[in-house]
């Protein structure tokens, strides 16, 4: 992998692993940022992994830009020879697809959409050559997804589907961004899905909503007491389609402090994945369900 380095002004170093998205580029970003963190280089103030690139923020009064460039380039060689094995966790995220709240928002912004006569799901199905919204939901929820970046706004995960490229779901973003998106909307733009951690503007297609908060600045949600942001880059997510009743029960459980996300530690081997994608995904699903 040929990395591209560029300074972002006098305080940032931007490193692009690849201009195209792939799990290999994502792993390179994740491994390099891990090694950089462990190296404890003086003057680094932020280490931000992204989908196929990463960014370092540094204090040029402590470390000269040329020196940080040298240090990071040296780490490129360490990362190249690392085994692409990730100790992470797989999490089941319940999704109420075609829910009434994202539907209402969708209708308010129909004129900003490519196809105002379809719903976002119907449009997404059609551009992916799938027969119906149901078929799209099946494709969206059958394979797991990697959290390949956390950001945009507080705690928002970008997710990358773990299938071979021909099967990867791709949907254009809205023609013009909406000024509103319900909190916890499950959205999709380009090849990435996301969960809107807070209410706000957004341009991704809206497919459904999860009852599970993923950002809580007050840290009242039981599983966010240790830290207010749920997702970390490298998490693996499996969507679980749910209906209205299950959604409402989950919301009540969250409010009562009873909701426990289904979540299991796993080890992910990128080489094994490339050798057998469906087999690896089946094993992950087995781990998630204690099989």
């Amino acid at each position: 992998m040929s990395l591209r380095y560029s300074f972002g002004g006098d305080e940032h170093l931007f490193v692009e692993c690849s201009d195209a998205m792939s799990l290999d580029a994502f792993f390179m970003s994740l491994e390099m940022t891990k090694v950089i963190k462990e190296a404890g280089i003086k003057g680094i103030t932020e280490i931000c992994p992204a989908n196929a690139s990463f960014q370092i923020k540094f204090d040029p009064d402590v470390i000269k830009p040329d020196d940080i460039l040298k240090e990071i380039r040296a780490i490129e060689h360490v990362a190249e020879v690392m085994e692409p094995v990730l100790k992470t966790r797989i999490i089941e995220i319940p999704v109420f697809y075609e829910d009434p709240w994202t539907h209402a928002t969708m209708m308010r912004f129909r004129e900003r959409h490519q196809d105002p006569t379809s719903t976002d799901l119907e449009y997404a199905a059609r551009v992916n050559g799938l027969a119906s919204a149901e078929a799209f939901i099946q494709a969206h929820s059958s394979a797991p997804w990697f959290v390949s970046m956390v950001g945009f706004v507080a705690g928002l995960p970008f997710l990358y589907q773990m299938v071979d490229r021909p099967r990867q779901l791709q949907v254009p973003k809205y023609l013009r961004p909406r000024t509103d998106t319900p909190r916890l909307t499950v959205g999709h733009g380009g090849c990435f899905s996301c969960v809107y951690s807070v209410r706000g503007a957004g341009g991704y297609q809206m497919f459904g909503i999860t009852p599970m908060p993923i950002y809580d600045p007050e840290q009242k949600v039981s599983y966010l007491k240790d830290f207010m942001v749920f997702f970390r880059p490298g998490d693996i997510v499996k969507w679980k389609p749910i209906g209205r009743e299950e959604h409402d029960n989950a919301v009540a459980d969250v409010d009562a402090g009873r909701f426990v996300p289904r979540m299991v530690d796993v080890s992910f081997d990128l080489n094994a994945y490339h050798a057998d994608i469906d087999g690896t995904n089946a094993k992950l699903e087995g781990v998630l369900h204690g099989r």
Partner: peptide
């Protein structure tokens, strides 16, 4: 590039 989007100003989402 794959994942970037079709507009010439698009990139694969980055920091």
């Amino acid at each position: 590039p794959f994942g970037a989007g079709s507009d010439p100003s698009n990139i694969v989402d980055a920091c």
